[in-house]
Amino acid sequence: MSTSKQTHDHDEIKNWAAERGGVPAKVKDTGGNSDDEGILRIHFPENSENQDTLKEIQWEDFFQEFDEENLDFLYQETKADGEVSTFHKFVKRQ
């Protein structure tokens, strides 16, 4: 059985992403105004065909918005079959 974890610890999020080849990104053209590039994501370039819809950003910029939006990172370490998981999503911090 796979279980999810939840955190807002920056180092924990960066380590989880790095172990899976993930980088901070935003979804292009999803921002509400010219100052907002779009929705936050962790992008896995080696496993993605959506290269042109995502823009890689710096961790500093990622965490600034992450904290401003009061988000938590919900994620899995492994799938039910034991494989490494890339499942994650952002949720409002309680």
Rank of each mutant, 00 (worst) to 15 (best):
Glu37Pro: 11
Phe44Pro: 11
Gly38Phe: 12
Ala17Glu: 10
Ala25Glu: 00
Gly38Glu: 01
Arg20His: 02
Asp29Phe: 06
Gly31Lys: 01
Glu49Leu: 10
Trp16Arg: 04
Ala17Pro: 08
Gly22Met: 04
Gln6Met: 14
Asn47Met: 12
Glu37Asn: 08
Glu49Ser: 14
Lys14Phe: 04
His43Leu: 11
Thr7Gly: 04
Asp36Thr: 04
Gln6Cys: 09
His10Gly: 05
Phe44Glu: 13
Arg20Glu: 05
Phe44Tyr: 15
Ser34Leu: 09
Ile42Lys: 07
Glu46Cys: 13
Ala17Cys: 09
His43Tyr: 15
Asp9Asn: 15
Asp29Asn: 12
Gln6Tyr: 10
Asp9Thr: 13
Asp35Ala: 13
Gln6Val: 12
Val27Arg: 14
Asp11Asn: 15
His43Pro: 04
Ile42Asp: 01
Gly38Leu: 08
Trp16Ser: 03
Arg20Tyr: 00
Gly31Tyr: 03
Asp11Thr: 13
Asn47Gln: 13
Ala25Trp: 00
Glu19Ile: 05
Ile42His: 03
Lys26Gln: 11
Asn47Phe: 14
Lys14Asn: 07
Glu46Phe: 13
Gly21Leu: 12
Ala25Ser: 02
Val23Gln: 11
His10Ala: 14
Glu46Lys: 15
Gly38His: 09
Ser48Arg: 14
Lys28Asn: 06
Val23Phe: 00
Gly22Ile: 02
Asn33Arg: 00
His8Pro: 03
Val27Cys: 07
Asn15Tyr: 11
Gly21Ile: 09
Lys5His: 07
Glu19Cys: 06
Asp9Glu: 13
Thr7Ser: 08
Pro24Ala: 04
Val27Glu: 05
Asn15Ser: 11
Gly22Trp: 01
Ala18Pro: 03
Arg41Glu: 01
Ile39Val: 15
Asp11Ile: 12
Gly32Ser: 05
Val27Ala: 09
Ile42Gly: 01
Glu46Asp: 14
Asn15Glu: 15
Ile13Phe: 07
Gly21Arg: 12
Lys14Ile: 15
Asp29Gln: 05
Leu40Tyr: 09
His43Gly: 02
Asp11Pro: 08
Thr30Gly: 00
Glu12Val: 06
Ser48Ala: 11
Ile39Phe: 13
Val27Gly: 02
Val27His: 10
Lys28Arg: 04
Asn15Gly: 05
Arg20Ala: 01
Pro45Leu: 06
Ala25Tyr: 00
Gln6Leu: 14
Lys26Thr: 13
Lys14Arg: 14
Lys5Trp: 05
His43Thr: 02
Ser48Asp: 04
Arg20Asn: 03
Ser34Glu: 12
Glu49Met: 09
His8Val: 05
Lys14Glu: 14
Ser34Phe: 09
Val27Asn: 07
Pro24Met: 03
Gly21Ser: 08
Ala17Thr: 09
Ala25Lys: 01
Ile39His: 11
Glu12Cys: 10
Gly38Asn: 06
Leu40Trp: 11
Glu12Lys: 12
Arg41Gly: 01
Lys5Phe: 08
Lys14Pro: 09
Asp29Gly: 08
Val27Asp: 00
Asn47Cys: 11
Lys14Thr: 13
Ala18Asn: 11
Lys14Tyr: 03
Gln6Lys: 15
Glu37Phe: 06
Gly31Gln: 04
Thr30Val: 01
Asp29Thr: 02
Glu19Lys: 14
Leu40Arg: 08
Glu19Thr: 05
Asn15Gln: 14
Asn15Thr: 14
Glu37Ser: 10
Gly21His: 11
Ala18Cys: 04
